[in-house]
Design a protein around this nucleic acid. Structure first.
Lengths: 333, 333
DNA sequence: TTGAAAGCGATACCAC
DNA sequence: GTGGTATCGCTTTCAA
């Protein structure tokens, strides 16, 4: 019936003042060992847990950060393990810092307004934003709000104050260099959506490497990460460039489809055509043949986003981070 | 420099008392249209947003519920789209109710303690718990705490006060009945983990249907949802029952591997051996041949969990829910 | 219908 | 090192 005990009750039980009890709970200085011990015992006996609402009211801190995932319909979220993986990384970093995670999904008009209210309703100490198309309204909202924020995945054409991203361009470059090194000469690509930085960056990497090698970079078909778009793109490539000897797909999901289309066209992978993907999702190990692909440290991405945000909320200054990618060679190239 | 405006400032600007302003914001009764309108305008001009911490302190409500995902290592979370899908459903229901979602991942000892503190630190109005092994310590913790809670997926051997689950047993039964109906007589199963209710329920459904049909239900190999376990199980089944003509795998991920093992053993699917999975994940459409599988309404699961919790927090009484599953026939059976 | 004032549970400042 | 007290921003009771 007591409900939750208050600090006042703790203080009374320990025979000290509320001020002293508070100091102990927040392990501040200026408390005698004796008093501290008494308070600690009282806390333990009463199972006292501070009321966070009351605490926030005075400290202006909430021990909570938000993760907003937007710029795509919920279907994408549900299907791409990418998000879960990022969240695991975030969770790990926040657990270390003892912070809570508030999740905000979607990006409808309604949602933007909700997030705006959330940000100004004194609930969170910072915000992480994930995977947005360049024109995501949340991006502007978050950067404008005077609350620490970190963007996961650079938006297209914008340089946010604080962001973490994988080295998409470098990863693509590595992939192509590997193909070139293995003697491939007629290399094509299925790009990602070119209204997102990931799409553009991987495409740029493709061109970088081919230009550097003095090979043509004109065998291009555009996809949008969806299997359907990949099927169309691969078919088109085969149609226009029947002699191509390698394909770099900007995502494993698309590479996997490319594999199928190639097989159906009677080509052997990797003998006739080499295929390289991007992401190194679990899927990559289970295609036939297993996919050579560019690993991107998704979990680290989340981890570093959260760590960066934590640093920001402490008033530390940080700079954006590009995480390295790595080519994982399996059987498809 | 003003920071956030307070209700006091709103009141002053509107030329009314704090009490009246508050009534308007919470659209309570006993406010004249004239006063209401003035306050509303002031709110708008000042971009006033109530301070949730202050509000919680007095109302004892937080407009926030928690989702705890536990009973498995983070790897599982990252790989199973199941969780994302549930979260999408939850997100939809919470958006309707205008509630926030606090996410708690993992289930280490440290975590249990964190959750315990969270529950008693006045931050959330209710908790949802997802996918636990029967002995998950969080389960006991949540049921004991006097805070509304909903369990997603019944824990093994326990009947929680409030839970939502898919009809795993019925779904498995349907799958087997379909196989029987198509003339399959030597039907085997690769089970899920038998320390989880899903595993047991699907296995029970398998036996139900075979018993009802007067067919033997002894062709059983145990898996744990992982591809590796499925490969071992399928190999073992083939070894012990080389003449089997159908396999029911308790998850698509395992069915997909079974397909591969069967193909490598020289059997044709579905001609020689029919294969049915469970879940209807996107994966199911892309296997060769496309997988016949039992659809479970994962998003609805999340949606109903959240709705149930919302009802509970309002003091309404609710009863647990079993959501129907449905056989989706493709090419593998 | 409205205004004034009493708390909600904590922190933090200021004397002692 | 410790205790008393103002204060955070809001809701809600009580009188008017």
């Amino acid at each position: 019936m007591a409900g939750q005990p208050t600090i006042e009750e703790v203080a009374r039980r320990a025979g000290v003042s509320r001020g002293t009890a508070s100091r102990v709970v927040n392990n501040a200085a200026h408390v005698s060992p004796r008093a501290r011990e008494k308070v600690l015992r009282a806390v333990d006996e009463l199972r006292y847990v501070p009321n966070q609402a009351a605490r926030s009211l005075v400290t202006q801190r909430h021990e909570t950060v938000a993760l907003a995932i937007s710029g795509m319909d919920t279907q994408d979220f549900a299907e791409h393990p990418f998000f879960s993986e990022v969240m695991v990384g975030i969770g790990a970093a926040l657990a270390e810092a003892d912070l809570e995670l508030l999740l905000v999904l979607g990006s409808t008009a309604r949602n933007v307004d909700q997030l705006r209210r959330r940000l100004s309703s004194h609930r969170v100490d910072g915000v992480m934003l994930l995977s947005l198309h360049g024109d995501d309204p949340l991006y502007a909202l978050v950067e404008r709000a005077d609350i620490p924020s970190v963007i996961g995945g650079k938006p297209l054409g914008i340089e946010p104050k604080h962001y973490v991203d994988a080295d998409n361009r470098g990863g693509a470059r590595q992939a192509i260099e590997y193909l070139v090194h293995n003697g491939r000469k007629r290399i094509a690509t299925i790009t990602g959506p070119l209204d997102m930085d990931v799409g553009v960056a991987r495409y740029d990497g493709f061109r970088d490497a081919l230009n550097a090698a003095g090979l043509p970079a004109n065998r291009v078909a555009h996809g949008d990460f969806s299997p359907e778009s990949a099927a169309r793109a691969m078919t088109k490539l085969l149609d226009k460039y029947p002699t191509l000897d390698a394909v770099f797909a900007a995502a494993d999901s698309m590479a996997s489809v490319a594999l199928t289309v190639l097989r159906e066209s009677g080509r052997r992978v990797p003998d006739d055509v080499a295929v390289v993907g991007f992401n190194d999702r679990p899927l990559a190990q289970h295609t036939t043949p297993p996919l050579t692909t560019v690993y991107q440290p998704v979990r680290s991405l989340g981890y570093e986003m959260a760590r960066m945000l934590v640093a920001l909320t402490k008033g530390e200054s940080v700079s954006s981070l590009i995480l390295p990618t790595k080519l994982v060679v399996r059987k498809s190239a």
